[in-house]
Design a protein around this nucleic acid. Sequence first.
DNA 1: AAGCCGTCCAACCGCCATTCC
DNA 2: AGGAATGGCGGTTGGACGGCT
Length: 514
Amino acid sequence: MGTTNKREDKKMSKGNPDPASVEDAKTDGNLGEGGILKKGPWTSAEDAILVEYVKKHGEGNWNAVQKHSGLSRCGKSCRLRWANHLRPDLKKGAFTPEEEHRIIELHAKMGNKWARMASELPGRTDNEIKNYWNTRIKRLQRSGTPIYPPDVCLQVYDGSQDNHMGTLEMADTQHCDFLHRDGFEVPGVDINGVLNNGHISYSPNFFDITATSILKQGLSSSRTHNVMLPTMHPPKRPRESETLFPALDGSVDSCLPMIDQFLDYTREKVTESFNMSSSFDPDLNTNGQAPFSVISGSHAFLNGNSSSSEPISGAMKLELPSLQYSETRPGSWGMPASPLPSLESVDTLIQSPLVEQICEPHDCVSPRSNGLLDAILYHPQPKGPKMNQPQQTSDVSVIPKYLVESSPMNPCQMDGDPNSPLAHSAASIFSEYTPVSGSSMDEHQSVVTMLGRDIMPETLHRDLSHYVIDKGIPDDIVFTRADESIFDLGWFGHNNEHGKNQQPLLGEEFRSCY
DNA sequence: AAGCCGTCCAACCGCCATTCC
DNA sequence: AGGAATGGCGGTTGGACGGCT
């Protein structure tokens, strides 16, 4: 931002055009060749003309500017110039810390809704905010710092829980049939299963990569991050951020990143408490079962990198708030990630209409859709006895005791609305279980087995988050990597007890640790 | 001094939604 | 009803600039 002021100064210095130049702007100096509308940087003379025009005629009818003022700019360009630079109520100069924090908050809630964000920041333009955000993102990605500070994550996450419809703007339900219209097919995904059972059935075969192997990678290697699965790239969709997750406006591209960050964190804690990172069964492929309930390809379970490691995301582009999707990285929220987070990897998040396919009308009115997570995993209703019985595995029965006992939603007391979409939301991904070995795709597990009991995934997630929030990190959790602790993140200045003054490991330094 | 590189930001582009005719 | 015009939005690009070597 340092350059901003300098540039503002420069801008100011050319703010008062002399009358002669104004005249030039109206004549040859301004006209493009052959009367073609001029492009490129605006001159002060042109600005003066535009200001004059707006004074006389007011805003709007921008195409008339050319006619009335002789300014050889298209209406669009005029509008933009006015809105972004000439409006008298514009606040110039760098963003204040308050504004910056507000932007982070707003982005957490809204995603890439720059215009809406701008409306919340008087005197600021969407373009300014967008530029700020994009450069900020790049900076944070380079530095390996989570994009959202934990307080914002939690704030938004909690807010999304409290506010059932707050982030759910249902106005766009028309998009629910989006897929049908476009006739998308998602290879490897049993759409019928989705429609009939509310389950995503994914066939790992399609990508020739098993959930187990992914899991294995995700838990044991930082490289999973870079695995870009074969992808389907539907034609670029307009307004992806809105249409990809219809009826979830403001929830997917806003909540998801936070939830992901949070889930990454929570997941990591679970993983660590399970000691999975160190004692993870190296022979998963032989027993063919993931030790932890997960729907293959479910977002944000395996390794904290939703974009690259999950089969379903192999057919899915999560339109996230512009680059906001901080790929988890060492010292960040999730599992080890690429040492060199690439914007490309974000950009190439695979696009998928899957969610919309899932989003049958009745699904769209999920009373508690928190975004992609719900969109993917919301189970309309358990279908009677067919409600998949959890496949009990010893592997998953290792939830730390403190979680069960301390949980405000003790699974033993789990009497909440099991049908609530909320109960299937974020944590569903966390825990959805797809048997990998030869199991029918119908055998997804919607619950996590904990100590022999079935609990809703949401419970686990909520338990973890609340536990951490309320009580901090339990003493009995041994952080095998102090620098992965939440308290060691950039936002906290690396000041936790375990890893005081440690810098997040980045790049090869980190990789070499594994 | 020159070249390289990263940052910043103004402006453009393409698309969609709404309004107008 | 439907096509054109207009406005709005988000993504992207290209140039200016500064720092570093």
